[in-house]
Every structure is written in C-alpha cells, then in structure tokens.
C-alpha cells in the first residue's frame, strides 16, 4: 500500500484524530465529577481557613457544619437570589464585570459561619490581578462589629515562589487577624504597608519583601471588592447599632431583640414567660 498518497494521508489523519478525540472525551467525561469535587473541596478548605478552621480532614463535612448560611449581595447591599458557593467557584466572572465598570451587575458571595460557641463571622471574597496572574482570597469579619478581621486566606495562580507566592502562607495571612476595616464609621479597608506596618496600626499589615507588586495588588484587590461589599457591610453595621441600642442596660424596652446584651436577653425571655 502506498502510504504517501494523498487519500491515505487524509484518511489516516482523520481516523487517528477521531480515535484520540474519543479516548480523551471518554476519560474527561469519566473523571469530570472527581475533578469538580476536588475544586469544590479546595474552595471549602479556603473558606474554612479564612475563619481559622484549619487542618480539616473532611472539608465538606466541616463546611456543612460551620457555614450555616450563604447568599449573594449586590453593590447596593441588597441580598439577591443565587447560589453563593457556585459564584465562589468562579469569582473571575464577577471580577470581569467589576473590571469593566459593571459593578451594579456584580453579585458577590457572603458566607455566614457559626462557631461552636455561637459567635458568628461573615466571609467575603476578593479576586483581582496579581503580578503574573490572578490572586484571590476570602476574608472573614467578626459579625458582632462587622469590622474586626477574624482571618484571611489568599491564593494565586502563578506568583513568584518565595516572594509574591508568600501571600498564601500562614505567616502572612495571620497578620490580618485582629485588623479593622473601619476607623470609627469611616471605611479604611486593609493597607499592605511596604517596609512594615507600625505595631499599633490596626488597618495595616506588613508587605512581603521582594513581593511589592503582589502585595500592592492584594491591597487593591481587597479594597476593590470590599468597596462593593461596603453597602451591605454598612447595612449590617447599622442593624448592629439598633440591636445594641440597649448597651447601657436601660433601653431594653426600646429595642426589639437585643442580641448583644445578656441582661436584655434575660429580661425578654422572662417577659415571654
């Protein structure tokens, strides 16, 4: 047989490609559920890490246990319909809207974590451009003041190992714990300070030596996304103010359900009885 003829070459190429495509399609189809589960577990692990729950063996179980609620918010602070977890799986889509100025159309995920002791944290996402590729992460805020950061976790596609890639390391993310998003009523976000943040700076963390661009990108990414979350955060904060009107224990009649004051809680429950 003449293996150099045109007909043979075309038929050979066609058959080869179809066979290879069939094999790949089959493998891809069979492995897709496992791969998807891996990606979901990665997001779950990161969400858990952002509220300080680390080294979990079964991410799904722990996620279902601690994350009691999740929803989407828009740039006006309204809750919108949708699956927050699915959005968290593809933060890029939301970032594409934000990048071209369509912030009104962006719907960002919020996760509510309830700890064993009953206290709550709200987790916000962020996604933006690093030095070589995208960087993203989750930042959790204490639900009792909507300002104190409970924890943060960041990840990246391809930042320089040992330099920018350090944003994913615990020594860096631990710096965020205890920092505040608000100065009084003024939103400040978190600054990543080159040369090191002052020890008493409650709005700044140390930047990474040699990772200046990644550090700065991270600061911008956080600030961009938190600004869109801001209306929602402010609504939450104002609600806290109402809830805590009874702080001096004397306004108990005026507030409907005061979650922050034990005295008030007891009085209310006694009234019910």
């Amino acid at each position: 047989m003449n293996t150099n003829s045109n007909t043979y070459t075309v038929i050979y190429a066609t058959v080869l490609v179809v066979v290879v495509a069939a094999v790949l399609a089959f493998v891809s189809y069979t492995l897709a559920p496992t791969q998807e589960a891996n990606r979901q577990n990665e997001v779950r692990t990161q969400l858990l890490a952002s509220v300080g729950i680390k080294d979990v063996t079964d991410a799904k179980k722990a996620y279902d246990k601690y994350f009691t609620d999740s929803f989407l918010v828009n740039s006006k602070g309204e809750t919108v319909e949708g699956d927050a977890f699915a959005v968290a799986m593809s933060l890029k889509e939301q970032n594409d809207k934000i990048r071209v100025g369509l912030t009104a159309e962006a719907t960002l995920p919020v996760f509510i974590c309830t700890f064993d002791n009953g206290s709550k944290a709200q987790v916000f996402a962020a996604y933006g451009a690093g030095l070589w590729g995208p960087i993203w992460g989750y930042i959790s805020v204490d639900a009792s003041d909507m300002s104190t950061i409970k924890g943060a976790v960041f990840d990246h596609k391809g930042e320089t190992p040992g330099l920018g890639a350090e944003i994913a390391q615990p020594w860096f993310t631990n710096n965020f714990i205890g920092k505040k998003l608000f100065e009084g009523e003024q939103f400040t976000s978190v600054k990543v300070v080159k040369g090191g943040a002052a020890p008493d700076d409650i709005h700044g963390v140390d930047a990474i030596t040699g990772g200046t661009i990644t550090s700065r990108s991270l600061e911008n990414t956080l600030s961009n996304w938190l600004t869109i979350y801001l209306p929602y955060i402010k609504i939450q904060k104002s609600r806290l103010a109402v809830l805590c009107a009874c702080e001096d224990d004397e306004n108990c009649e005026s507030c409907e359900s005061c979650e922050c004051c034990d005295n008030c809680q007891t009085e209310k429950s006694e009234e019910v009885k």
Partner: peptide
C-alpha cells in the same frame, strides 16, 4: 509502518 511520511511529525504530536 503505517504513518504517512508527510504528516509524520503531526502524528507523533497527536500521540
């Protein structure tokens, strides 16, 4: 023995 010589490299790449 069956690979057409002219698209040899492409066939290798596919494999």
């Amino acid at each position: 023995n069956g690979i057409p010589n002219r698209i040899r490299i492409i066939v290798q790449l596919v494999i």
